[in-house]
């Protein structure tokens, strides 16, 4: 029972990170109908920027802010410089370009920083408190929950309570109508990419201390887990992304806890296949795909 509780809290903590990263994928999917396969590589690039700043200044938080702000800029740049010029008549085009970006970003990072793991520090202790004799939560886990909770709350406020959020939603659902109503649709798309990449970079910063360290491929498993979470939630649904993230986190924790850590990546892929075969629209999608 103690082990089960421990694994549950561990899974929720991981799941919160997957949820944030899945949310980033959903943001771009909703804005541009592209699954951003470069999200992981972009988050790694932002994390390296943060790592450099932390090394130069000695401050984790300056590095953290740099990574999130760097993600914001990188997301805007990727949309403005690359994705805007991709012919979106076939969905495969965006995917191929995104995969190309992955190769470029990982190659460049490898040239600058080398292909070795760089140990990354955590801002809080990862030693778990004893609660009733069971080690359940660390300070770092609490930080993860607080950070992801803040992001979810801010995004909810943005999209439901602000004029910019209304513009972004309208531009995504009905671009031509929105332009006729005075909405700068291109700007909203850039903003969507920027926000998504910032959220993805935040998730990347949160995951690095829980892994072996920073590496050009460090976010590959994060991407696969979060992509599975997003598909599980329906790609279109922010609530689905958060729930999907937590489910995948729990699944990974239980599988690595009871069956061994090496089986965990396989479990994610099996879940992805099962979802795609059984309920390709995800658990939370309500509307049918737009055809017009």
């Amino acid at each position: 029972m103690d082990r089960f509780l421990y694994l549950t809290f561990d899974g929720l903590s991981r799941g919160a990170i997957y949820a944030a990263f899945a949310l980033a994928l959903v943001l771009i999917w909703r804005a541009a109908r592209i699954v951003n396969f470069a999200q992981g590589a972009m988050a790694v690039a932002a994390a390296y920027a943060g790592y450099s700043v932390t090394n130069a200044t000695g401050s984790y938080w300056l590095g953290f802010i740099t990574a999130v702000a760097g993600g914001l800029l990188l997301g805007a740049a990727v949309e403005r410089v690359v994705m805007r010029f991709v012919d979106h008549s076939s969905p495969l085009n965006g995917v191929v370009v995104a995969l190309g970006l992955v190769l470029i970003i990982q190659g460049v990072l490898g040239m600058i920083y080398g292909n070795e793991f760089r140990p990354a520090q955590a801002p809080f202790s990862r030693d778990a408190f004893q609660i009733g004799g069971v080690a359940l939560l660390s300070r770092y886990d609490l930080f993860v929950f607080a950070a992801v909770g803040t992001v979810v709350a801010l995004l909810t406020l943005l999209f439901t309570r602000t004029p910019t959020g209304l513009r972004m939603r309208a531009a995504a659902f009905a671009p031509d109508v929105s332009r006729l109503l005075g909405v700068p649709v291109g700007g909203m798309l850039t903003l969507g990419w920027a926000l998504a990449a910032a959220v993805g970079s935040l998730a990347g910063m949160l995951v690095v201390p829980t892994e072996l360290g920073l590496h050009p491929n460090a976010m590959d498993l994060l991407f696969i887990s979060a992509f599975t979470a997003a598909v599980l939630g329906g790609l279109d649904s922010p609530v689905g992304a958060v729930v999907g993230g937590l489910v995948v986190g729990l699944l990974l924790a239980y599988v690595s806890g009871y069956l061994g850590a090496t089986v965990a990546p396989m479990a994610v892929l099996i879940l992805l296949v099962v979802v795609l075969l059984g309920r390709p629209d995800g658990l939370f999608s309500k509307a049918k795909a737009r055809t017009a």
Binding site: L166, R169, A170, F173, A174, D176, V177, S178, L180, A287
Partner: peptide
């Protein structure tokens, strides 16, 4: 006001 009414149906 475009043809087909142009209401954003998701809003």
């Amino acid at each position: 006001v475009p043809e087909g009414r142009g209401v954003v149906t998701e809003l």
